[in-house]
Design a protein around this nucleic acid. Structure first.
Lengths: 200, 200, 200, 200
DNA sequence: CATGAATGAGTCTTCATTCAT
DNA sequence: CATGAATGAAGACTCATTCAT
C-alpha cells in the first residue's frame, strides 16, 4: 500500500508539473517560459522537472498533445453521434465554446496559422487539423447526400469555413477580445453559416 | 546620377535588411531568429543592422507594420469604392488571395490568435483588427439597409465570419497547407458564406 | 559536521568570487575587468558569478563596500577611544598603514578624487568621506577645547589635511610608489603636521 | 596665403578635437567617452578624428599631457623664482587653485592614487609626480639650509604632504565637494602646514 | 527520488576603426 | 582632406541542462 501511495504521488507529481507547464507555456510563450517558473508553480525543484520530462522541448510537446487530445476526442464523439448534420455542428460549436471558456489560453495553438517551432510537432498538428477537416467534410458530404445540405456545395470548403467559424471566430472572441459570448450570438453566427447572408 | 544611385543604394540597404528580417522572423520565430542570420541573409555585417534599427525588438515591429500596412490600405480602398456589398467582399477576398500568394509567409501574423510578446505591438495589432472588423461590419450594415443582405443578420458576427473566411480559410490554404487555390474554390467558398449551407 | 562543511563551502564560494573580483577590479578598472576573468580567478564558471551577484555593477559595489567597511569601522573605533587627540591621530595613521600594507590595492578607491561612474555608489562614497571628515573634525575641535591644539586653527581644514596625510601621502607611498615605509618616516610626517614646518 | 589659411585651419581642427576630447574624457571616463561624441563636440566627422590622432588611446594620452604640461610648467616657474620658501609655496597653491577653478575636471587625473589604464602613460605620470616631488623637496631643503624651516624636518615627507595639501585638499574641495573656496580658508590651511597644530 | 548549485553555449549590443567616395 | 557607412571583435547576461549530495 505504501508503494501504491508512492506510485500515486509520483504520478501526481508528473501531472502537477504538466499542468504547471501548460499554464506557463500558454500564458507566456515557449521562449519566455522558463523551467524555473514551471518548477516553482508546480511546487517542485528545478531538477525534478527533468526527472519526469527529458527536456523543455519534450515537455512542451506533451503539454500540447495533452491539451489537444481531449478536445479532438470530443470533436469526434459529436461526429459519430447519430443526429442531423445541423445538430451535430451546433453541438461541436457549443462544446468548443465550453472548452475555450474554461481553458482560455490553452487551445489556441492548435488552430493558429502560425507554424510552430518544432517540425515534429508541426507535422502532428497538421495531421490533427487534417483529420478534423476530414471529419467535418464527411459530415457535410453526408448532409448533402441526405439532402439536408444544398447539393452544389464544395464540401471541403464548407468544412474549412466551419472550422474557421468554430476556432477562429469563437476562439478569437473569447481569447483575444476576451468578450463574454452570449448564446444568441453563437446562434446568430451559426445561422449565417447555415443560411447565408444573401437576402431572400 | 551617380549621387542618385548612391542614395538609392543607401535606402536599399535598409530595405535589404528589413526584407531579410521579414523572411527570418516569419520563417522562424522572434526568439529563434538571430540578428546574425538576418544580417547574413541581407548580405551585411552584424553591426550594420544596428545602423538602421536600434534593436531586434524595434526591427521586428517595423517588419510587422511593413507587412501589415500595404494590406490594410488595400482593404480600406475596397471598402470605399462604390459597388454592391457582394462585389466589394469579393474584391477583398481576391486581393487578399493575391497578396498572400505573393507573400506567402508575411501576413499571417496579423490574424493569428497567438498573442504577440510585445504589449505595445499587440495593442497596435488589436487596433488594426478592430478597424478591419468595423470596416466590414459597416459594409454589412449598409448591405442590410439597402436590402442586399437579410435584415435579421448580426452584422458584427457576419463581419467576424467574413474575416475568418478571408484570413484563415484562404490564408490557411495558401500558407499552412501550401495548396494551389483555384478560383472556383474561392467562388464556391464565398458562395457558401453568401447563400448558406441550408438546402432551399 | 559534514553539513557544516557544506554550508561553509557554499558561503566560501561567494567570498571566493568577491575576493577575485576585488583583485581584478582594483588591478584593472571597472571597464577592463571582465566577468570571465573574475570567474576564472575565482575558479568558477561564468554563470556561477551570476548565481551570487545579479550584475557586474552590483558585484563592483559589493567589492567596494566590502573593502571600505572594515576600514571605516577601525577609523571610528579609534575616534571613540578615550585618549589624547595626538595619540588618536597617531593610532589612526598606524592602523591605516597596516591595512594598506596588507591590502595594497584595495582601499585607494575610497579616497580617490576620480569620480566613480555610478551615481549611487558615488553618493555613498561621498557620504563615507563626509563622515570621516566629520569624525576627524570633531576630534580636532575637542583638541582645541582642551587646549591640546592651537585655538586659531580652522578645524575642518585641519581635518582635511589630516585625511590627505593619511590616505594620500601614506597611500601614495605604499600603493603608487610601492615603497617600504619605515616607522620613523611616519613619525616624521606626523611631526610636521603636528608642529609645522616653520622654524621656531 | 590660401595655403597658409588651410594650414591654420588644419591646425585649428586638431586643437578643436583635442579640446573636445579633453572635455569629454574628463566629464565621463575613458571608457564611457566615445569617439562619436568627441567628434560631434568638435564639430567634425567621426573619421576626421582619425586623421589627426591614430587611436582613442593616443588621443587620450595627448589630452592628458596637454592638460598636465601647462600645469607643470607653472609649478616649476614658481620654484625657480627667487623668493622666500613660504612665499613660493603660497604662490604654487594659489596658482593651482586658479587652474583648478578654471578647469574643474581636468587636472585631477595627475594626482590620483588610482593607477591609469595605460602602462606607458602611468609611467609618464609617475615621472612627472616624481619631478614635482623633487622640486618641492629641494625647495624645502633650501629652506632648511637658510633656516627658514626647522632643521629636523624630513624634507621628502614635508614635500609629499605639501603636494597632498595642494592637490588633494584643494582639488578635493573644488572638484569633488564642488565648494567655493575662500581665500582665508586657503590661508588657514597653509598656516597649519607651516606652523603645525600643536598648541604653544 | 529530489534538489539546486554549477555551468557554458548562445545572443544581443556597443563602439573603435577602416576605407570607399 | 573629410566623411560616415560598414564592420566584427568583445563582453554582459540568460537559462536549459547536468550531477553530486
Amino acid at each position: 500500500m505504501v508503494v501504491n501511495n508512492q506510485k500515486k504521488e509520483v504520478s501526481n507529481k508528473r501531472e502537477q508539473i504538466l499542468l504547471a507547464a501548460v499554464g506557463v507555456f500558454f500564458e507566456k510563450d515557449y521562449y519566455q517560459a522558463t523551467i524555473v517558473e514551471i518548477a516553482e508553480r508546480a511546487g517542485v525543484g528545478k531538477g525534478t522537472v527533468y526527472e519526469y520530462f527529458p527536456s523543455k522541448e519534450e515537455l512542451f510537446k506533451e503539454c500540447f498533445s495533452y491539451c489537444a487530445e481531449e478536445y479532438i476526442q470530443s470533436f469526434h464523439q459529436h461526429l459519430s453521434k447519430p443526429s442531423s448534420v445541423k445538430e451535430a455542428m451546433y453541438n461541436i460549436i457549443n462544446t468548443h465554446l465550453e472548452l475555450v471558456r474554461d481553458n482560455r489560453k490553452r487551445l489556441h495553438l492548435l488552430f493558429t496559422e502560425r507554424p510552430l517551432n518544432f517540425q515534429e510537432l508541426q507535422a502532428w498538428v497538421l495531421k490533427q487539423r487534417q483529420e478534423l477537416l476530414q471529419g467535418i467534410t464527411s459530415l457535410i458530404a453526408k448532409g448533402i447526400k441526405i439532402e439536408e445540405i444544398r447539393s452544389d456545395i464544395d464540401a471541403e470548403m464548407a468544412g474549412r469555413l466551419f472550422l474557421a467559424l468554430t476556432y477562429v471566430v469563437i476562439g478569437g472572441l473569447v481569447i483575444l477580445d476576451n468578450v463574454e459570448v452570449r448564446d444568441e450570438q453563437i446562434t446568430s453566427l451559426f445561422e449565417i453559416y447555415w443560411n447565408g447572408l444573401g437576402s431572400k
